[in-house]
Design a protein around this nucleic acid. Sequence first.
DNA 1: CTTCCTGCAAAAGTTTTGCATTAAC
DNA 2: GTTAATGCAAAACTTTTGCAGGAAG
Lengths: 151, 151
Amino acid sequence: MANRYREHVQVDVHEQVADRLGGAGQRYTAARRALVDRLRDAGQPMTLPELLDGAALAQSSAYRNLALLEQVGAVHRIVTSADHARYELAEDLTEHHHHLICTSCGHVEDFTVSPALERRLHEAVEEVQGGTGFSAAHHRLDLIGTCRACG
Amino acid sequence: MANRYREHVQVDVHEQVADRLGGAGQRYTAARRALVDRLRDAGQPMTLPELLDGAALAQSSAYRNLALLEQVGAVHRIVTSADHARYELAEDLTEHHHHLICTSCGHVEDFTVSPALERRLHEAVEEVQGGTGFSAAHHRLDLIGTCRACG
DNA sequence: CTTCCTGCAAAAGTTTTGCATTAAC
DNA sequence: GTTAATGCAAAACTTTTGCAGGAAG
């Protein structure tokens, strides 16, 4: 089970997003709410075509809204080698996690690691920062391979 | 120092690449050798414009050669949020390492972590594989933030 | 009634592909 | 001689942008 460490701290996602948009002088429109709902319901990073499928929203609006949501820290954009980028809710609206990336079908799945390893990672990050002058906003641990369906 | 754990096991890169190309019925031309030389000399992942700068090679040939080199496992392509993808020699021609990715200028720098942490990472990978049916070819640990020059 | 949002269409920009020519084995 | 590699130009494709009309506060 990849999610055994998941804590399920539930925050009010919509309220959070509305706040962050409001702080930037932007509105939480129905289209934006729908995007957030889809992202939350999916529980997995989604491509733009997936987000758009069956939704009454222009492609350009979707891109614009997702870019805005990323700017205000509500959404995170993941680029892989696959055709489309993928979008997910920001970690502080869900929780810290990592990705299994299938090189065959492009599918991205979440997983979490033990708090102990996460702590070690964090220590390593600190260590590297000290030595290089690099200031890390966050880290990213991904597994690259093939998913069950493709394997 | 980010590279304190580096082992400097030197393999004959050109011989390795020639072998892998040969195995696929492809030739190790001067243009390909030049790309490999640049990648090795840089010691950092490079964009296509960087690789092409001052080189007598058509853009399309560069893309084609890099794609081929990636297919035969000699080169690794890294995609970030920046405009261009970056290319580096495959890890088995250099060594296992990780990346500091600057979100401001797009620069990518290498770093290594202690063998102990690397071992822990490997264990975590095994653990996740068992639980999910995902088959991981490799893992990726990146730090995302701002580099010394941009910070 | 001013500011932001949306849709459509066009543009931008990286990467890929077709095709004729040249080079490698 | 056959097969692969190159350069040029054009295409493909995701993502971005301009602009005019609509919606929201």
